[in-house]
């Protein structure tokens, strides 16, 4: 079982990226929804820091994942014709949203005028200048991207489950590498 991807199989590195990011993305969206509905106080202020740290981690991981896929291209979807193209476009959109969502959150945090910290320690450089209108716009975008990502991830999971139950190997090869 190799680290690299084969023409029909997922290597260990790609699978680790996939499942680690699955956990991160779902945790981040759950945490984000919690943040947007809770009453902030001293006892839960750290959750904002956690969300920012996990979000920046996810951004770093998705960039590394793309870099890895340039080095070791993953196998294409197990479908043919228009369906294959559609699934590819779906996956590319997932990637675009996994990049755009944390960037919009980072920009919104920067626009708030408060330092963005990674791991409660390192100050991340601001992406944009502090400005109330820009803060509002970036956080609206952050929310739209995150909710679109959530919807698309749920459909992605249901589609993978359906194919898994149909036994075409889609789910198996992401779990074990080979179909």
């Amino acid at each position: 079982m190799g680290l690299r991807n084969g023409p029909e199989s997922f290597g260990l590195v790609s699978r680790l990226f996939h499942w680690l990011m699955a956990i991160l993305v779902l945790s981040l969206i759950a945490l984000g929804l919690r943040l947007s509905s809770m009453e902030p106080g001293l006892s839960n202020l750290w959750l904002y820091g956690l969300h920012k740290t996990l979000g920046l981690t996810a951004l770093g991981l998705v960039l590394l994942r793309i870099l890895w896929h340039l080095i070791s291209p993953p196998p294409g979807p197990m479908a043919t014709g228009w369906e294959r193209l559609f699934i590819k476009a779906w996956h590319w959109t997932l990637y675009a949203l996994m990049i755009a969502t944390p960037i919009a959150g980072w920009a919104g945090s920067s626009a708030s005028g408060i330092d963005t910290l990674y791991a409660e320690t390192f100050v991340v450089p601001p992406l944009v200048e502090a400005d109330e209108t820009s803060e509002f716009v970036w956080f609206i975008l952050h929310e739209i991207f995150a909710k679109t990502l959530l919807g698309m991830v749920i459909i992605h999971m249901l589609a993978a489950l359906r194919r898994g139950m149909a036994g075409d190997g889609t789910l198996t090869r992401m779990l074990r590498g080979k179909a």
Binding site: L42, L45, S112, G113, I114, A130, D131, E132
Partner: peptide
Amino acid sequence: SFPFAAQALKGPK
């Protein structure tokens, strides 16, 4: 009383 509050306090908002 906590770092974010000082930044928020002095910031443009």
